[in-house]
Design a protein around this nucleic acid. Structure first.
Lengths: 139, 139
DNA sequence: TCCTATCTTGGAATAATTCTATTATATAGT
DNA sequence: ACTATATAATAGAATTATTCCAAGATAGGA
């Protein structure tokens, strides 16, 4: 828990109580929360917290490379506190997002017509499917 | 042009003037327009067209498998009238989206821990980069 | 301890999308 | 061609997600 905070000390990143709560909530969290998920959680301990604080904090973390913005869900953004290169799969039934740790970098070669026009800086591989819980329900 | 409309006749899909305009705008269009792009275009010929019509129509097309919703842009949805499996690259400078027609299906194998939980139904491979125009400008 | 840059907050603003009630019309059936 | 009706179009309100803003609060360096 202290280790969560250590890397943010100094460097003009103020460790306010709200931010500490957000950092602790995100630490090791693999649930891919939305801004609202974070807001709801932090509100339990800090009832006056605002969405602005949540968005400010995730943006600060993103700028520092500590957080990824996930685009797999067409409806809203999700966040992932694991900034290392990996991918995702979303259940089209319940919306749950899980991690996919396979490294596809070797496989994702681009044709010359694309690489000649774009300097490629990154990629997302998103999978869609139906999880076992949802298969039981809807059949 | 007639061929664009042929496949929509019958089957409870009403070919209204607004829809025909949308279908013609989308036919062969590789610009990956947003709802607003479509709205702005159709408004030229039908000044009273509403966003509801645009959204209703793209949803009807999506339901019929004639249109894909693109999630590569975190800010807004884009649409692609080419429903065959392919992928995209977006310029992080100007937001332009281009098609990537490489077939990665063979390469995108998932670990057993994922396939045992999810019945996989689809995937998106999104690339990010900087296009040649934007390299000239910002650099 | 004090100063100040930075943060938090509430609420307003913006933007994207969906919904609703009403009016209009494309098309199937005659 | 005519009519009935299911479906669509429209305006505008509602919803949802996100950003902005001004004022007061505070973390952390000096």
């Amino acid at each position: 828990m202290e280790s969560v905070l250590r890397k943010y000390r100094g460097k003009g990143f103020k460790l306010t109580p709200q931010r500490i709560a957000i950092l602790k909530f995100l630490d090791g969290n693999t649930s891919h929360p939305t801004a609202e998920d974070i807001y709801t959680e932090i509100k339990k301990k800090y009832p006056t917290v605002s969405f602005a604080t949540v968005y400010n904090t995730v943006q600060a973390l993103r700028d520092r490379g500590e957080l990824l913005e996930i685009t797999i869900d067409p409806q809203r953004k999700h966040f992932d506190p694991n900034p290392s290169a990996h991918h995702h799969i979303m259940c089209t039934g319940c919306g749950r997002i899980a991690d996919v740790f396979t490294d596809y970098s070797k496989a994702l070669t681009l044709p010359e017509e694309v690489t000649s026009e774009f300097h490629v800086t990154g990629n997302h591989v998103d999978f869609y499917g139906v999880c076992s819980d949802c298969r039981k329900k809807t059949n």
